[in-house]
Design a protein around this nucleic acid. Structure first.
Lengths: 112, 112
DNA sequence: GTGATACTTAGCCTTATGGAACAGTATTCG
DNA sequence: CGAATACTGTTCCATAAGGCTAAGTATCAC
């Protein structure tokens, strides 16, 4: 039924893990390499890399490799999707039916 | 059943599924029974119930049974946790180091 | 050129998730 | 009472998530 899922699926899924939220918090204060990001975590590098790939797949970060170092940067624009969903949700329970709500809820309906 | 290191784990995980987001959207305009909520979905009721339990476990909804009908209500207060995390995140990349950021990021650290 | 560094790739394992079916319980209706 | 309604409990299944090792590749430092 839901063959085409919303970007929100990946975004919220990415945020559901404390390791990934911590990475985002770290990247909030500027780009960093994989190994710098991994340092605080008691985790094997390939396991950590899965989190990075997940974050990149959700669009919340962007990565670029130069030489042997891959640098990760936060993708602030993607956070707008969360704000939009939150706004639409609030609009619903505040009984508002404005343009933003119409836009976002119709986008949600297309998920199914 | 669900053991999370932070309430945010459960909240974001709950939001990561389109069925559950649709349920929240529906509940935004007022409480509803399980079967009313389930109607739009092409899904067996026990499967649907898992989503309801998940939402209840995350604190995003509250349910109460009267007679044979269980009524679900959205728990708006829980959405504040998301807003708080978003604010903290924005504060980080805007270079602010105010009280809110201090509070929320220290709460995040306690997750581990 | 050798060795250290910084990822990558590829398996493997365990648990969680999202779905199903089927049977059961408890209310409410006629 | 008996039947329909509204969940609820149980079990099963396939796939994804999150962790691990071990081994591979590509730079960079000397």
């Amino acid at each position: 039924m839901e063959q085409y899922s919303s970007p929100l699926d990946g975004i919220f899924q990415a945020l559901a893990d404390p390791t990934r939220r911590a990475v985002l918090a770290r990247l909030g204060s500027g780009p960093a390499s994989i190994s710098d990001l991994a340092k605080p975590f008691d985790m094997a590098l390939p396991s950590f890399m899965k989190h990075i790939h997940f974050l990149e797949g959700s669009g919340l970060i962007r990565t670029e490799k130069q030489g042997r170092v891959r640098t990760c940067t936060i993708e602030k624009a993607q956070f707008a999707a969360i704000e939009a969903w939150m706004s639409a949700q609030r609009a619903l329970w505040e009984g508002r039916t404005d343009r933003l709500e119409q836009f976002v809820t119709s986008a949600e309906n297309k998920e199914k």
